[in-house]
Amino acid sequence: MGKTTTTSNIAVALARGGHRVVAVDADIGLRNLDVIMGLENRVVYNFIDVLEGTCRLHQALVRDKRVENLFLLPAAQTRTKDAVNSAQMEELCAMLRKEFDFILLDSPAGIESGFRNAAVGADEAIVIATPEVSSVRDADRIIGLLESMGKTPIRLVINRLRPNLVRQGDMLEVSDVLDILAIDLLGIVPEDDSVVKASNRGEPLTFTDTSPASKAFQRIALRIAGEDVPFPKFDEDRSSGFFAALRKFFGRTE
């Protein structure tokens, strides 16, 4: 959950870090990366137009004026997933590789052709999951498919973690999720109301540095760029130990 939000925030953070970045909306027919990034009014062409020769790559790329070197490559909204095949997606990625340091492909939900097409051209994969049973289960399936496609590394972003729920033992901890999925952790994004506000405005959070989720996305971007950034402890389990028990006990009597 949160693929598009994550894509937009990582893209902005990487571009602010000085990298040349393109965010590709691979969700044909259900495009949303343009609105999340606030670039919907500037979309003219899409990547299917590029593949079909209707326009050149540079005509389809939407430049984000708020930061240097950030581009969006939109999906077609009035087409279906069948409009492209794997070979074409690989061709598209090959074109983009020449121009950009980072190509972020925002995959559609599901495990059908749309997902496979998004994955086929990718060098590595980032799986986004929330710490809930259904989401972790889906992530496990996706990881299995990505592994069978030979995508590696596959790294995990745990999204919408609620530290207070973890503390009271009502949400899966980061370690639980990692234990179950057995892949490397790329980042932990805490639940943050500002994500909704950012999507309302079409301004990815990482344009400003203040909110907890923005900081989390920025750390993820740094890790993608190869930096070793420590993971802050959002979910320190304070439910064990004598004083924790006391705290809890008194907390309960309030």
């Binding site: 049973v133 289960r137 009502d170 179950i180």
Partner: peptide, 24 residues
């Protein structure tokens, strides 16, 4: 611990996940 804990649901979540994933 048991006495003071609020009976968290996360252990149930983890157990259910582990079982459903064996099946999957």
């Amino acid at each position: 611990k048991k006495f003071f804990s609020r009976g968290g649901s996360k252990n149930t979540a983890k157990e259910r996940l582990q079982i459903v994933l064996i099946h999957d």
